[in-house]
Design a protein around this nucleic acid. Structure first.
Length: 444
RNA sequence: GGUCCCGUAGCCAAGUGGCUAAGGCAAUGGACUGCAACUCCGUGACCACCAGUUCGAAUCUGGUCGGGACCUCCA
């Protein structure tokens, strides 16, 4: 398996820290609002990554946090006259419901920053003791200039960043690039610390939680490309000081999802919220996975619609396979290997092994779809159809495509038999009647 | 101002040195079919432009034009 590692900027063979185990962490949301479809991209992609590792028999420990301490949360709390906890509870549950809505698993470890305050404060203290952070008037800043290799992830040089000159001037900082570890606060929720009352900066949270939950360098750290700088860069800097390693062996960053040609942002432009998305989740999932994860996607209604239809097409084929096997009582058991199906299976594995090329994996799914239709039309023996069905099941599991096919009831089977009988006898009035019933029940 | 990414058929999109440049949508011709739906088969690209490296480039290098991101909270 190969993964493009943002840390080295190279395609690398994936070798886990521990054989057969994948420890991965994906930056989660700051819970002060509903998520938009751009936020759903990493949710869907990294869920697919997890599925694929599991499909390849890895044991995956998947962690994604909730940032539940933040200025935006405090602002929102004041605005709505609620406590911070009421705000974050509300948007955490909204987030999880949106995650499920796009067919991603919510069965993973979900730490909240507020539960790790002791660790965070402890780490900041260590950074201060080691001379990599300094306290000014209740704030604590990280001394970027002390870390060699700062900028390694995002390929930036400190000098180039300084030339940027768009960085806010803060007289307390020794260097404009120094980032906040602890922020003194007057309003909103605050926590006690040796540096004074305040709240932690964003960049320390993930490091502290990863260290506490995994206790060592993890395999994969994922997130959107927007997080590469400064967030992930700062995480690496802190981890180098605290643990003497780069936090994760492989860093993976997904590209952004734009609306039309421009970026979807919480602060400007058009935003489509996941909760308002009124389409088939499988179609949305195919749409999201149809572009390689590192490339940007330009969202348009038309582009999404193509994949909604694609899903309907795939489901029709799958339903037909399922029905045929159900009627023959052949839904379970071992299928017979067909060379073309084997080729398609290999295409799928090759695609996924090559840096999670889901676009090509979807092509394999489409090839399977076509092959299955050909098999269905050519009176193929059921054992081969069963292999095809099992291949669909595998692909669905990895890509997170869900359906609710169940074996037919005795009554429904009888109607199906009557329909075929009527057709054979050219009794088209009755045939149409039975067909209507079957169509209404979604059987055909 | 600094750093970086992208430009493949009407549209979406894979492919990053080597057979006839995947696949899907749309279009169009055909097959199947009681009708309809579904489905299958066929038909399309001098890979933005220019120059260079190479036996050979969409793929590497330089330049031009065009689009976008980051340097500030942002998936």
């Amino acid at each position: 398996m190969k993964i493009f590692n943002s840390y080295s900027n190279k395609l690398e063979e994936f070798i886990p820290v521990h054989k057969g185990i994948v420890n991965m962490y994906v930056c989660g949301p700051t819970v002060y609002n509903y998520i938009h479809i751009g936020n759903a991209r990493p949710v869907i992609f990294f869920d697919t990554v997890k599925n694929y590792f599991e499909f390849r028999d890895y044991k995956v420990k998947f962690v994604s946090n909730f940032t539940d301490v933040d200025d935006k949360i405090i602002t929102k709390a004041i605005e709505l006259e609620l406590t911070e906890k009421e705000i974050t509870d509300k948007f955490i549950s909204a987030f999880l419901s949106d995650v499920e809505k796009v067919n991603s698993s919510i069965d993973y470890i979900k730490p909240r920053v507020t539960n790790y305050m002791d660790h965070i404060i402890e780490y900041i203290g260590i950074l201060v003791d080691k001379g990599f952070a300094y306290v000014v008037d209740g704030d604590v800043y990280f001394r970027v200039s002390k870390v060699k290799n700062y900028g390694i992830l995002s390929n930036r040089k400190i000098d180039d960043l300084l030339v940027g000159a768009r960085i806010e001037i803060n007289n307390k900082k020794e260097n404009p690039l120094d980032f906040t570890l602890w922020k003194k606060t007057d309003v909103g929720i605050k926590f006690d610390s040796p540096f004074g009352e305040g709240r932690p900066g964003w960049h320390t949270e993930c490091v502290a939680m990863i260290d506490d939950i995994f206790g060592e360098q993890i395999d994969i750290h994922g997130g959107g490309s927007g997080l590469m700088f400064p967030h992930h860069e700062n995480e690496i800097a802190q981890s180098q000081v605290l643990n003497n390693h780069s936090l994760a062996k492989y860093w993976m960053h997904n590209g952004l999802l734009n609306i039309g040609d421009s970026k979807m942002s919480k602060s400007e432009g058009e935003v489509i919220l996941v909760k308002d998305l009124d389409v088939n989740p499988n179609g949305f999932r195919l749409f999201t996975l149809s572009t390689h994860y590192r490339s940007p996607i330009n969202y348009t209604d038309e582009a999404l619609d193509v994949y909604i239809k694609e899903w309907e097409k795939i489901l029709r084929t799958y339903s037909a396979l399922y029905l045929k096997l159900d009627l023959s009582d052949m839904l379970y058991g071992n299928g017979k290997i067909d060379p073309d199906l084997l080729t398609i299976y290999k295409e799928f594995l090759d695609a996924m092994d090559n840096d999670f090329n889901t676009a090509n994996a979807i092509t394999a799914l489409q090839n399977l779809n076509k092959k299955a239709n050909q098999l269905l039309r050519s009176k193929t023996e059921d054992s081969v159809l069963l292999s095809a069905k099992k291949l669909f099941d595998d692909f669905f599991n990895v890509l997170g495509l869900k359906h609710n096919k169940k074996p037919l009831s005795k009554e429904d089977k009888d109607i199906y038999i009557l329909w075929n009988k009527a057709r054979a006898e050219k009794d088209f009035d009755n045939a149409d009647k039975y067909r209507n019933i079957l169509q209404q029940k979604g059987i055909i």
